[in-house]
């Protein structure tokens, strides 16, 4: 009996170091964050009076600065999500199918070529694209002018600012989704394609009726992870457009950072972060249920 207890104890020691880190840097901040969001928490003041739900109430009260920062940020972040996620998913899948249709010998090269930008950090991505998209001397506008077209203010006018941010983001991260899709495509059974060939199915029919249904779970995974990643966008607008023109590309995370470190209102900023997390979780769960619901329906038809 005693030795069993002893064994449980020594086994527990294996988990202990991670459990300590998990507690200190995940559980404690989770609780602490809720706590801060219920206080008037000025970064410079040592006293943080309890204010109940006021930080949350202010975010929902129109006319307050918190309301304006949060809503503007949320609207812009949602725009970025809506513009970028479909491209990140569709181009990711298209690149994966392209790579998979190439002769085996050269697949590795192209896979690496499309994946390489992922290894470059966001500030360097921003430097490169700022320069490529520079209105006067940028490579892109030089090319446009070379073709006899007029220069485009890529970073200072809408809708070009969003287009630039989306292009840079797709270029930077698409390789990640491509890799996931390549693997999913390799898992689809060859036999199904062969059977379809015998039936004389076209490439499009095979794609719709075999490929897409087979990779559905991975598709859901990619849609959800891309949505989360796009929701967390910060570096690209912070460095490339600085939230401009005006505040039109100032995303939610920029608003939260501004509230916390420029206005030094940690309480209000924490409340915003809580709401942002709740929205992200709801969207992920919603996407999951929606895509799963569709599958159920499909099965009934079959």
């Amino acid at each position: 009996m005693k030795s069993k207890k002893m064994s449980a104890f020594t086994s527990f020691l294996f988990v202990l170091p991670y459990l300590i880190m998990f507690t200190l840097f995940l559980v404690v901040p989770l609780i602490y964050g809720v706590y801060i969001s219920f206080h008037d928490w000025n970064l410079l003041s040592p006293i943080h009076p309890f204010v109940g739900g006021e930080n949350y109430a202010r975010i929902f009260t129109s006319g307050t600065s918190e309301n304006r920062i949060f809503l503007n940020g949320l609207t812009n972040t949602l725009q970025f999500v809506v513009y970028s996620v479909p491209l990140l998913v569709i181009i990711g899948l298209a690149l994966a199918m392209l790579v998979n249709s190439l002769p085996m010998k050269i697949r590795g090269f192209f896979r690496t070529a499309y994946f390489i930008p992922y290894a470059v950090s966001v500030s360097i991505i921003a430097v490169l694209w700022l320069w490529m998209l520079d209105t006067n001397s940028g490579l892109v506008n030089q090319a446009l002018e070379g073709l006899g077209l007029s220069a485009i203010p890529w970073l200072t006018k809408l809708p070009y600012a969003w287009i630039s941010l989306v292009i840079a983001t797709v270029w930077w991260t698409i390789g990640f989704n491509m890799i996931i899709f390549i693997n999913a495509l390799n898992e689809v059974s060859e036999e199904m394609y062969e059977a379809a060939n015998i039936d004389g199915a076209s490439s499009w029919q095979k794609f719709i009726h075999i490929t897409l249904p087979s990779i559905r779970p991975i598709m859901i995974f990619v849609i959800i992870t891309s949505t989360i990643a796009s929701f967390n966008v910060y570096g690209q607008p912070y460095l490339m457009t600085r939230g401009g023109p005006g505040e039109s590309t100032e995303v939610l995370l920029m608003g939260i950072v501004q509230q916390a470190f420029e206005l030094r209102q940690m309480g209000a900023a924490s409340a915003m972060a809580m709401l942002m997390s709740l929205i992200m979780i709801s969207i992920s769960v919603g996407q999951f249920l929606l895509t799963r619901g569709k599958k159920r329906k499909g099965e009934e038809h079959a």
Partner: peptide
């Protein structure tokens, strides 16, 4: 859990 929830605390 979204990363942003633990960022400020």
């Amino acid at each position: 859990i979204p990363w942003v929830i633990t960022f400020l605390p």
